[in-house]
Amino acid sequence: MFAAYVTVTIVAAVFTGSAAVTYLIGHAYPKAQLDMKRLPQSWGPVLGLVLAAGSVGLLIGIAVPVLGIVAAAGLVLYFVGAIGAHLRVGSRQLVGPGVFLAVSVAALVLALGRQ
């Protein structure tokens, strides 16, 4: 069970960490996503920092379980919000945020199972 937890946690951290980097370097894709969702461009770096904090929190959570639980729960909320933002503007591009949400939920469930 611990091996599954570590594997899923690392995958979730890599996914969210890579998304954080795209926001933080000002890549065109997250900018287009913000425009599509009618959100201000100034939110890009903030969302990138939230994703980065979640990613780092997941990794630290391997050693400090409560931090991993909090980070995973925060990421679940983030991606629920992302799906809500897509639905709000009528977007049906839900596979991306759905995959991120599923990985975050898996990390949360496995982190809770460690307790």
Rank of each mutant, 00 (worst) to 15 (best):
A107V: 06
A107K: 10
T9F: 05
S18G: 10
A52G: 04
K37E: 10
V95L: 15
L87C: 03
V14T: 08
S104N: 13
A32P: 01
M36G: 04
V8A: 12
Q33P: 00
I60E: 08
S18R: 02
I10V: 15
W43V: 01
A85L: 13
L47P: 05
V21C: 03
G98R: 09
L24S: 05
A102N: 04
T22C: 02
L77S: 09
K31I: 10
Y23T: 01
R114D: 00
Y23V: 00
F100L: 15
S18F: 12
L58Y: 00
A52H: 04
V8G: 03
I83W: 07
V64N: 00
A12I: 12
L112Q: 02
G98M: 08
G68F: 06
A82R: 04
L110V: 05
S55M: 03
G44R: 14
P45M: 10
A111W: 08
V11C: 06
A63F: 13
P30M: 04
A72M: 01
V6C: 07
S104G: 09
T9H: 08
A52V: 03
A3F: 13
G57I: 04
V80N: 01
A52W: 00
G84K: 13
L101M: 07
G44Y: 04
M1W: 09
Q41V: 05
L67T: 07
F100E: 11
L24P: 05
T22K: 10
L39V: 04
A71Y: 12
V21E: 06
L87W: 07
G44D: 00
S91V: 11
L112S: 02
F2Q: 13
V76R: 06
Q41E: 15
V76A: 02
A71I: 08
A106K: 02
V109E: 02
L34D: 01
V70W: 13
V105L: 15
G57L: 03
V14L: 14
T22V: 09
A3R: 06
L77F: 11
S55I: 01
A82F: 01
L75K: 12
G96R: 11
A19H: 15
P30Q: 06
A32Y: 10
M36N: 14
G48V: 03
F2T: 15
K31C: 01
S104C: 14
G68N: 05
I25N: 13
R92V: 10
R114E: 10
L101S: 06
A52F: 09
V11N: 04
W43E: 02
L112C: 04
S18T: 13
A3Y: 13
Q41P: 09
A53V: 12
G48S: 04
T7F: 15
G44E: 00
T7W: 11
G44I: 01
A106Y: 06
M1F: 11
